[in-house]
Design a binder for these strands. Structure first.
Length: 601
RNA sequence: CGGGGUGUAGCGCAGCCUGGUAGCGCAUCUGGUUUGGGACCAGAGGGCCGGGGGUUCGAAUCCCUCCACCCCGACCA
């Protein structure tokens, strides 16, 4: 080793000529895509801790490896796919007129204090101090940094609108990371931020991004659906999520069978059949041990929908901070907690304890709206209803004949129930369906909620200082990789679409003779020269092993070079699990180019 | 945060109940036979049995404690 080190010479003063036209070949460069030299370790068994198909397959096929909870390595093949997804996103963002930049992952606490999020953002924000005892965090998102940047550079309305984006790693210390790349703590995201002089301009850009997202997800070959989304605690005027439809999705979305309406169940509105109750006087009835809505309905031989479920929550944030609030819905409905949070302008809610229930006059198991000392909200479907049944706030008792409009002077109504499959669409009345979705994109008209505190100001047409209006637009790039696999797989492994595959072609060399290897190497170089991405499986493995691996990895085109075909001067070209044909040796390139659509070279 | 579960070789697991210093399959390495759908034979390497503490002559095994990871729940008066 010592002699080797001495042989590495640097002579100062000598000009270094680096020719870009005739690069000397590194000893490794022609080996790079030979499987025998390539880091793509496949596993025969499913790793025990992988639950969803994309997690299993990406691990087994050698795309990713786990480093720690919610944090992954992208191996060479994984990175190749990631780059392709990024490139599609990048091309479409650029086409839409956005400019790429790169912001830091480490952010100073000052910026977050300025936006008031240092306090508001929960434990998801990973905070730390540096050696100077300076408080910092890992960026879960970049509104603060972009606002800081733009506020320094923005002077005139003439500079607006502008849309800046980056493709960068984010860190969110999720409560429960799971499903591999689907919900990681560290993940790669494309985030764009637009700045505008007025609402009209923001709306135009929102629409522009909406269309851009449709293009992106279409190019990625995904079955997706834009859905109306909760604007969250941030406020803002409009928000859409883009969901990839998949069984493993963590979100529930409601979509109409008759029109375009689609919304996250966190906010989906819908109509339901409201049973006609019979009016009567409020009467107490004994309901021994009947606490659940179903039990009470059965016991009283009544329709569950005529029951009023009264749920008590402890509220955090907003005007009701620290208070207990009652939410009333029909017995056969479920409370959509996000709707309650929104109705109360709260940040979070939690079910009240037995002591808290008691403190506001309730009796656990027999809580009803009548007689509670706390604020009460009723679901819209309870308006104008008569003959309702509710808890009596006395042990083993309910009341019948309740008419909220008649019996309650200070009744507040809001949409609190969760949409159910079969409910009526709020737009057209047709039946609503529920599907699972993976949220892969989110567009958001923010308004001035960040630009105001961050002082993103400019001089307007009238010469006065004005605050910029903002939009933000995110795409989960690494999550997309998992989402694609969720949709594109079969019993043998991943089935990448051509434009996302890490390699378009796998050369599978079989047989024992040297002629197979020689022919393969020739083809390998021919394809490389033609700009085709190819992984040459030159390993000394049996054919079955090579077929299985190529299929597991999801490579779209397999070129099988074997002695049997070579004797006749042909190789076999297969599309994964589809057609196969024999192609003469000198026709390989044109055959592949036609399969690849001619655009890949 | 709460509840449940699992940590033993790169991956998948057995051994633990009933203590005696570690095993199986796949993968890896060597040699040979094979070669169009996850081969076979022979041999080999690889493990502070998640960490720490305790009980014991002796701990993967029993006890305590910490940690990591996975699953479920945040569905309800």
């Amino acid at each position: 080793m010592r002699g080797f080190i001495a042989s590495l010479k640097w002579q100062p003063g000598l000009p270094v000529n680096i020719s870009t036209t005739s690069l000397p070949a590194s000893p490794l460069c022609f080996r790079a895509m030979r499987y025998s030299r390539f880091l793509a370790p496949t596993l025969r068994d499913d790793p025990a801790d992988a639950e969803v198909i994309s997690h299993k397959l990406l691990l087994r096929a050698g795309y990713i490896r786990r480093v720690t909870s919610g944090v992954y390595d992208f191996l060479p093949m994984g990175l190749r796919v990631l780059r392709k997804i990024e490139q599609i996103v990048r091309e479409e963002m650029n086409r839409a007129g956005a400019q790429e930049l790169l912001m830091p992952m480490v952010q100073p606490s000052e910026l977050w204090e300025k936006s008031n999020r240092w306090e508001k953002y929960g434990p998801e924000l990973l905070r730390f101090t540096d050696r100077h005892n300076h408080e910092s965090c890992l960026g879960p998102t970049h509104e603060e940094v972009i606002c800081d940047l733009v506020s320094r550079e923005l002077r005139s309305y003439k500079q607006l609108p502008m849309n800046l984006y980056q493709i960068q790693s984010k860190f969110r210390d999720e409560i429960r990371p799971r499903f591999g790349l689907m919900r990681g703590r560290e993940f790669i995201m494309k985030d764009a931020y637009s700045f505008h002089a007025d609402e009209v301009s923001l709306e135009a850009e929102y629409r522009n991004m909406f269309e851009t997202y449709k293009r992106i997800f279409t190019r990625l070959g995904l079955k997706f659906r834009p859905v109306e989304a909760d604007t969250g605690s941030i406020g803002g005027s409009a928000s859409h999520e883009f969901h990839v439809l998949a069984e493993s999705g963590e979100d529930l979305i409601a979509h109409c069978s008759g029109c375009e309406y689609a919304a996250n169940v966190e906010m989906a509105e819908s109509s339901r059949n409201i049973p006609a109750g019979e009016a009567g006087d409020v009467t107490g009835v004994d309901t021994p041990n009947a606490t659940s809505a179903e039990d009470v309905a059965t016991y009283l031989k009544a329709d569950v929908a005529q029951l009023v479920k009264t749920l008590l929550y402890r509220i955090t944030g907003g005007p009701e901070d620290g208070n207990i609030v009652a939410a009333c819905i029909r017995g056969d409905d479920q409370l959509q907690e996000i709707k309650l949070v929104r109705a109360l302008k709260a940040t979070s809610i939690e079910m009240a304890s037995d002591e808290e229930i008691k403190a506001v006059g309730g009796v656990t198991g027999f809580v009803g709206p009548v007689g509670l000392s706390c604020r009460r909200l009723f679901d819209d479907t309870l308006k104008n209803s008569v003959g309702l049944i509710a808890g009596a706030n006395r042990i083993d008792m309910h009341i019948t004949g309740l008419d909220i409009g008649r019996d309650e002077s200070t009744s507040e109504f809001a949409d609190l129930r969760q949409t159910r499959a079969g409910d009526g669409c709020p737009k057209c009345g047709n039946a609503v369906k529920l599907s699972r979705g993976i949220e892969v994109g989110h567009v958001f008209a923010l308004g001035t909620c960040y630009s105001e505190p961050m002082e993103v100001q400019f001089q307007n047409r009238e010469g006065k200082r004005s605050t910029a209006t903002m939009g933000c637009y995110g795409i989960g790039v690494s999550r997309l990789m998992a989402a694609v696999v969720e949709q594109c797989n079969d019993e043998n492994g991943i089935v990448w679409p051509l434009n996302l595959a890490p390699f378009q072609v796998a050369i599978i060399t079989m047989g024992k003779s040297d002629s197979g290897l020689e022919a393969s190497e020739k083809i390998y170089h021919e394809l490389l020269d033609a700009g085709i991405e190819v992984l040459w499986d030159d390993r000394k493995e049996r054919p079955g092993v090579k077929f299985k691996d190529a299929e597991l990895m999801g490579l779209p085109i397999h070129l099988i070079v074997g002695d049997r075909g070579l004797e006749n001067g042909v190789v076999e070209v297969r599309r994964r699990n589809e057609t196969k044909e024999e192609v003469k040796l000198d026709q390989i390139l044109p055959a592949l180019q036609s399969l690849l659509g001619g655009s890949q070279a």
